[in-house]
Simulated scan of single mutants.
Amino acid sequence: MQHFFVTPDQVKPPYIYIKGSDVNHMKNVLRMREGEELVVSDGNNQKYLCVVEHFKADEAVVSIRDELPLDTELSSRVYLFQGLPKGDKMELIIQKAVELGVYEVIPVETKRTVVKLDAKKAEKKVSRWNEIAKSAAKQSGRGIVPQVTRVMRYAEAAEYAKELDVVLVPYELAEGMDCTRKIIEGICPGQSVGIFIGPEGGFEKAEVQAAADKGARVITLGRRILRTETAGLTTLSILMYHLES
């Protein structure tokens, strides 16, 4: 069944008014017709079973048949602070992070970041990344569309993370799987969690130390060195399993 997102102000029981590019997608790509069922989420963790009533030039009017139980969100908000990778890796990271339950993705420019984005390029990239997040949220049945924020410098991202309950820094030079296991198992449902992932080449030692000095927990993901596009998704997978167990 097709899944669409709207904003809460578009929900006006007994109808929901779908607007924007989704209308063209419904009419001309999916070729949806009156009477066809679909699922609509309001982006605020509420989901509805709906039926297409009719189309207007720039709007689709659907009627609400039922409110659906929603249990796709993690019990904790998880923030992925991702060091900017080269090429299109960020698109894959965002897509899979949304599938795994991330709440927000923060692109981070670190000392070893190779990619340099000026303001115009960064704005275009972030817009593209948010579209990918929206598409992944539809596909995975999320109750919200995770946001991809503007690109932040490392110090700014660290400041942004200071209000989180737990901050994790997977680091290739860290040791002690038993310690890491205890840290993960100590995270309680409802706590906010930040994950800092370095770009290609990882974090500099000074960056890791600065995070640790502010209370971040430096952890290991095992004996193997993971690529930047693997490390964050591995950490998210571990958290998803822990929080949903």
Rank of each mutant, 00 (worst) to 15 (best):
A119K: 15
E229M: 09
A122E: 14
K124D: 13
P14L: 03
G201V: 10
E172F: 08
L38H: 06
F196V: 09
F4G: 03
A133I: 04
E163A: 12
H54M: 12
Y103Q: 07
Q10P: 07
E175L: 05
L92G: 02
L30I: 02
K96A: 01
H3N: 00
N28C: 02
T110M: 13
L226V: 07
I93M: 11
V40R: 01
R181L: 12
C179P: 00
F203M: 06
R65E: 15
L236D: 12
M1W: 04
L226E: 10
E109P: 01
G232R: 05
A60D: 10
S63H: 07
A216Y: 08
T7S: 13
V126A: 11
K120L: 13
E159R: 14
F203A: 06
L49Y: 02
E73F: 08
M32E: 02
G198M: 07
T113A: 00
P107Y: 04
V145S: 03
P8D: 12
L92A: 10
A133M: 05
D88Q: 15
Y103L: 01
H242P: 03
D178A: 12
Q191F: 01
G143L: 02
S192M: 08
P85K: 12
I183G: 01
D165A: 11
L243Q: 04
P13M: 11
V39F: 03
Y17D: 13
A155V: 03
A216G: 05
M90K: 00
P85M: 02
E73C: 03
P170A: 06
L68H: 04
S140C: 10
V61I: 15
I18V: 15
A136L: 03
L239T: 09
N44I: 03
Y154G: 07
V167K: 14
R31T: 02
I187C: 00
L49P: 01
Y17Q: 08
A155M: 10
D9Y: 10
E53N: 11
L221Q: 08
F203L: 12
L68K: 09
L164M: 02
T110H: 05
Q2R: 01
E67S: 13
E163M: 13
L168Y: 05
K125Y: 10
L49A: 15
F81S: 02
K56Q: 15
R112S: 07
